[in-house]
C-alpha cells in the first residue's frame, strides 16, 4: 500500500498528464466520429454571450449590405405574391394545408467559420424559441446547414461546409436526386454526388433541396452546377455546385421547423426493426 502511494506521489505529474491527455483525446475522437457527438461546443452562456457582444459591433459595419439583402428578398417575395395570385386561389386543398406544417423561426448568426474541414456556426436562438436539433437552417439566398446542439438561448449549426454534413438535393430541371457533401476544398463550392448516369445534367442547372429529406422542404435553392465529373468507379456523376449563399458573409437566417418530424421519426422507428 505504501509503495502504491509512493508511486502515485512520485509520478503525480505524469499521471495527471496521462489523465488529461486521455480526456482530451476522447473529446477529439468523439467530435470527429459521428453526428451530434460534440460535447464541447459554443452553444453555452459563456461563448454565446461573448459572440453576441462581438456580433453587435460587427453588424454595424455590415448594415448597408444586410439591408440590401433584405430588400432584395422582400422584392422577390412581393414578385411571388403579385404573379402567383391565380394559382394561390386554385391550389388544391391538401397542399394549402401542407403549408401550415412548416414553421419558420427567425434568427441571427453570431459566429461563423468556414476555413476548416468541420465548420460550425453559432446562432442566437435556442430551445426557449423552440429550436431543436436536426432542424434546417436557410438564409434568404439558400441553405446554410442543420441544427446540431441546442442550449436555452443559443444553438450550433453544422454548416453545409462540413465534411460530416450530408443533405439530400436534386437537379431542379430533371428531378434527379443526389447527396450534397463538401470535400473541404473551397468555401464557395459544394459537391453533389450519386447523380445517376442517365440524368442529362448541364452546366448552369439549378440545384435545390430534394423532397426526401424531412429536414428541408422541397425546392429550397442551393446553387448552380459549375463542373461535372464522371466517377469511373461507380458510374455516377459528381457535380461541383456553386453556392448561392456567400458562406463567408452570413447574418440573418431562418430556422425551419417541420411540425410533422416527430410523427415521421416515430413511424420510422417503429418500422425499422421489421426490416
Amino acid at each position: 500500500m505504501q509503495q502504491i502511494f509512493n508511486f502515485i506521489f512520485k509520478n503525480s505529474n505524469r499521471l495527471l498528464f496521462l489523465l488529461l491527455l486521455i480526456t482530451s483525446l476522447t473529446l477529439v475522437v468523439q467530435s470527429h466520429s459521428y453526428h451530434r457527438s460534440q460535447v464541447v461546443n459554443s452553444a453555452n452562456i459563456l461563448s454565446g454571450n461573448v459572440y453576441e457582444q462581438i456580433n453587435e459591433i460587427e453588424t454595424y459595419f455590415r448594415l448597408k449590405q444586410q439591408n440590401d439583402k433584405l430588400a432584395q428578398e422582400n422584392a422577390a417575395l412581393r414578385k411571388l405574391l403579385f404573379n402567383q395570385k391565380d394559382s394561390v386561389f386554385n391550389l388544391p386543398k391538401d397542399s394549402v394545408k401542407g403549408y401550415d406544417k412548416i414553421e419558420v423561426i427567425q434568427s441571427k448568426i453570431i459566429n461563423n467559420s468556414y476555413n476548416v474541414p468541420e465548420n460550425y456556426l453559432t446562432i442566437n436562438s435556442g430551445s426557449l424559441k423552440g429550436v431543436k436539433p436536426d432542424m434546417g437552417v436557410i438564409s434568404s439566398q439558400g441553405i446554410v446547414g442543420v441544427i446540431e446542439k441546442v442550449s436555452s438561448n443559443y444553438a450550433t449549426v453544422i454548416s453545409v461546409l462540413n465534411i460530416k454534413s450530408k443533405i439530400n438535393a436534386k437537379v431542379k430541371r430533371t428531378n434527379h436526386f443526389g447527396s450534397l457533401i463538401w470535400t473541404a476544398k473551397n468555401a464557395g463550392y459544394v459537391q453533389l454526388v450519386e447523380i445517376p448516369r442517365l440524368a442529362s445534367v448541364r452546366k448552369g442547372d439549378t440545384i435545390v433541396t430534394g423532397g426526401i429529406s424531412k429536414i428541408f422542404p422541397e425546392n429550397i435553392p442551393v446553387g448552380i452546377i459549375d463542373k461535372i465529373y464522371m466517377d469511373t468507379k461507380t458510374n455516377y456523376y459528381t457535380v461541383d455546385v456553386r453556392l448561392f449563399n456567400d458562406m463567408t458573409n452570413l447574418n440573418h437566417v431562418y430556422i425551419i421547423n417541420n411540425k410533422d418530424i416527430d410523427e415521421i421519426n416515430k413511424l420510422e422507428a417503429e418500422t425499422k426493426p421489421n426490416e
Binding site: 482530451s24 460534440q38 459572440y51
Partner: peptide
C-alpha cells in the same frame, strides 16, 4: 468551446 473544435486545442 469558442471554436467548436472538439478537444483539438486542449
Amino acid at each position: 468551446i469558442f471554436s467548436n473544435s472538439g478537444g483539438v486545442h486542449a
